[in-house]
Amino acid sequence: MNGVHYVTRDGDVLDLICWRHYGRTAGIVEKVLEANYGLAALGPIYPEQVTIFLPELPKPKTKQVINIWD
């Protein structure tokens, strides 16, 4: 599985890590937790030097926006 490894700094939280890396959190936090066995047991705020694998995930589908002025 492709992806990158992120090493935490003291006080990091998973949703912010996901937001910075993927640009969204909906459904992403769960996938990252699935890819990192035991990560949830560390609690919501991580100490420094925890390595988190951020898997490569598909980009979200964008909806076509129709403007009433077009």
Results as ranks from 00 to 15, higher is better:
residue 42 L to K: 12
residue 36 N to V: 03
residue 43 G to K: 02
residue 25 T to W: 01
residue 35 A to T: 10
residue 34 E to D: 15
residue 3 G to M: 01
residue 39 L to Q: 13
residue 19 W to G: 14
residue 37 Y to F: 13
residue 5 H to K: 12
residue 18 C to I: 07
residue 21 H to C: 12
residue 31 K to N: 14
residue 30 E to A: 15
residue 33 L to W: 11
residue 34 E to H: 13
residue 36 N to W: 05
residue 25 T to F: 04
residue 5 H to A: 11
residue 2 N to P: 03
residue 16 L to I: 15
residue 38 G to V: 03
residue 17 I to Q: 09
residue 37 Y to G: 04
residue 11 G to Y: 06
residue 41 A to I: 06
residue 37 Y to Q: 08
residue 38 G to I: 02
residue 18 C to E: 02
residue 5 H to D: 14
residue 38 G to K: 06
residue 35 A to L: 07
residue 46 Y to G: 07
residue 15 D to G: 06
residue 36 N to E: 06
residue 13 V to P: 02
residue 43 G to A: 07
residue 7 V to T: 13
residue 26 A to T: 13
residue 42 L to N: 13
residue 30 E to N: 13
residue 48 E to Q: 13
residue 9 R to K: 09
residue 46 Y to A: 04
residue 34 E to K: 11
residue 3 G to S: 07
residue 38 G to Y: 09
residue 5 H to L: 02
residue 35 A to H: 08
residue 16 L to F: 09
residue 42 L to H: 14
residue 47 P to I: 10
residue 42 L to A: 10
residue 36 N to M: 06
residue 45 I to Q: 09
residue 11 G to A: 01
residue 39 L to G: 12
residue 45 I to G: 04
residue 33 L to R: 10
residue 32 V to C: 07
residue 40 A to L: 02
residue 4 V to N: 12
residue 30 E to Y: 11
residue 21 H to T: 08
residue 3 G to D: 02
residue 47 P to M: 05
residue 10 D to R: 00
residue 23 G to S: 08
residue 43 G to T: 03
residue 10 D to N: 07
residue 13 V to L: 03
residue 41 A to M: 05
residue 43 G to Q: 04
residue 5 H to V: 14
residue 48 E to P: 02
residue 48 E to G: 14
residue 32 V to I: 01
residue 3 G to W: 00
residue 45 I to C: 07
residue 24 R to Y: 06
residue 14 L to A: 07
residue 14 L to C: 04
